[in-house]
Computed example of a mutant assay.
Amino acid sequence: MTDNLFPSPPWPAIPVQNEPRRYPLHRIFCVGRNYAAHAAEMGHQVDREQPIFFTKSALAYLPTGMESNYPPGTEDYHYEVELCAVLGAPLFKASPEEAGAAIYGYAVGLDMTRRDLQARAKQGRNPWDVGKDVEESAIIGPITQAAEMGPLRDQRIRLRLDGELRQDAPLSDMVWTVPELLSRLSQLYHLAPGDLLMTGTPAGVGPVAPGNHLVGDVEGLAPVSVTFIDPD
């Protein structure tokens, strides 16, 4: 074993409600178009045959309550509030029932998006990476263990910008349930503890500007919040 050429950043870790230990975050998987109304507002239909998956680096994680720099290269940076699920057991080629049993807990997250760069990539049939995998673009609140959260039913998922309600829908509006998403994802990856899934956003997405404050919440979970600042 040789020494590294330069220091490597530690794995980020997410606080857990009523638990002194943190949850090490290894990979972030995301889902596109999992709410029909959001797909429609973006000019798309949902794919009911196969979920749309993409990824963010774990180093895109930003804890709740922090200030975040408005990112470079965009003039249309959008919020998307999402339910996040984290794993507590390995999954590979799992059934939805097996996937549901492997969920350690849930959190509220913000999937921030350089919408103009994403739209440009879509037009050219190019990857979404520069639109989605942005520094400080995965803002995640504390995890609540699944047993404390209870079953996912019609809990509301909401986002407020400077106190004004912008997104509001029941979790039952999701096209694919969380166990179904994890089951499908496990056909593509060897999933393990440390993996987090952002499960899609309801309608009402829109831009933020330096000075804006966002608060996202899901009934039964700790909220997530962030304030954007101008890095200049």
Rank of each mutant, 00 (worst) to 15 (best):
M1F: 01
N4K: 09
L5C: 02
P7A: 08
P9H: 05
A13E: 15
P15N: 10
V16K: 11
V16P: 08
N18Y: 14
N18C: 14
E19S: 15
P20H: 12
Y23K: 10
I28P: 00
C30I: 07
V31C: 08
G32K: 03
R33T: 02
Y35T: 00
H38W: 01
A39G: 01
E41W: 00
G43N: 08
D47L: 04
R48N: 08
Q50M: 15
Q50V: 13
T55M: 15
Y61C: 01
T64P: 02
T64N: 06
T64D: 06
G65Y: 12
E67Q: 15
Y70W: 07
P72R: 13
P72N: 13
T74Y: 10
D76K: 13
H78Q: 08
C84W: 00
A85F: 05
P90K: 10
F92L: 12
F92C: 14
K93S: 14
P96N: 08
E98S: 12
A99K: 10
G100D: 09
A102W: 03
G105T: 11
G105R: 12
A107T: 02
L110E: 03
D111H: 03
M112F: 14
M112E: 02
R114D: 08
R120Q: 15
R120L: 14
G124K: 15
G124M: 14
W128E: 11
W128R: 13
D129R: 14
V130T: 14
K132R: 10
D133L: 08
V134W: 01
V134R: 00
E135Y: 13
S137P: 01
S137L: 06
I143S: 03
I143E: 02
Q145P: 10
R153L: 11
D154E: 15
Q155G: 07
R156Y: 07
I157G: 03
R160C: 12
L161I: 04
L161W: 03
D162Q: 12
E164N: 09
E164S: 11
E164P: 04
L165F: 11
L165S: 10
R166N: 04
A169M: 07
A169I: 06
S172P: 02
D173C: 08
V175L: 06
V175C: 07
W176T: 04
W176P: 02
P179T: 05
L181T: 03
S183I: 10
S183G: 07
R184H: 11
L188G: 01
Y189N: 12
H190D: 15
H190N: 15
A192K: 12
P193W: 13
D195S: 01
L196V: 14
M198F: 15
P202R: 02
A203M: 02
G204W: 05
G204H: 07
G206P: 07
P207R: 05
V208I: 10
A209M: 06
L214W: 04
V215M: 11
V218K: 06
P223C: 06
V224A: 11
V224H: 02
S225I: 04
T227Y: 00
F228K: 00
I229T: 14
P231D: 12
P231H: 14
D232M: 09
